[in-house]
């Protein structure tokens, strides 16, 4: 069996040693940083270490400590699962909602996305709890409006108006 993977007592579920996985993952990241650094144009200035030094230090530091962590921390890892199956699904759902929020914020503007996004977040995070849909909608509209008008009118900080509306010449609020 490869290092980092162990068989659980019941023989059905495999557990991974997260420290070993972290070590390998960090080594890959370090290699990518090292490769990216080699592509940074080196401009030689007298008595100056140059722009590549610190990214190289980061890459070497990551690699060295990843190996040390695998050697010293790996054997002591308790192999406790990070999340159960349902937990991973919940994580994917909430991250996907955040991604959708960001995309729609750009497309249809902050105000509409704020209302719809808030409602979607509340619906997801509530779990098994019951909510009053009308109260929830009012909350979403009021909070999004306070944020939108507070920022755009109060602080004079622009928030996205929506590229779709702008492309067809519709002015949203």
């Amino acid at each position: 069996m490869p290092p980092g993977i162990s068989q659980k007592g019941d023989g059905h579920m495999k557990k991974i040693n997260r420290t070993y996985v972290m070590g390998v993952f960090t080594l890959i990241v370090a290699a990518l940083i090292g490769y990216g650094t080699s592509k940074v144009p080196e401009m030689l200035v007298s008595n100056e270490p140059g722009p590549r030094l610190f990214p190289y230090i980061s890459a070497i530091g990551l690699a060295v400590f990843a190996v040390l962590s695998m050697i010293f921390d790996g054997p002591g890892e308790d192999n406790k699962p990070y999340l159960d199956h349902a937990g991973y699904i919940r994580l994917i759902v909430i991250m996907a909602e955040c991604l959708a929020f960001a995309v729609f914020m750009n497309l249809i503007g902050f105000w509409i996305t704020g209302v719809a996004g808030l409602f979607a977040f509340i619906w997801t995070l509530k779990g098994d709890k019951k909510i009053n849909v009308a109260v929830c909608l009012i909350f979403c509209i009021v909070l999004s409006s306070i944020c939108y008008f507070g920022f755009t009118r109060g602080f004079n900080i622009p928030l996205p108006k929506g590229s779709i509306w702008e492309s067809v010449g519709i002015s949203m609020i």
Binding site: F110, G114, F121, L125, G127, K129, L143, C147
Partner: peptide, 16 residues
């Protein structure tokens, strides 16, 4: 669910 949803929206807005 209300508080954490508001935090998410404010975080995105703050970053923007």
């Amino acid at each position: 669910h209300y508080l954490y949803s508001a935090i998410l929206v404010i975080a995105f807005m703050g970053a923007f």
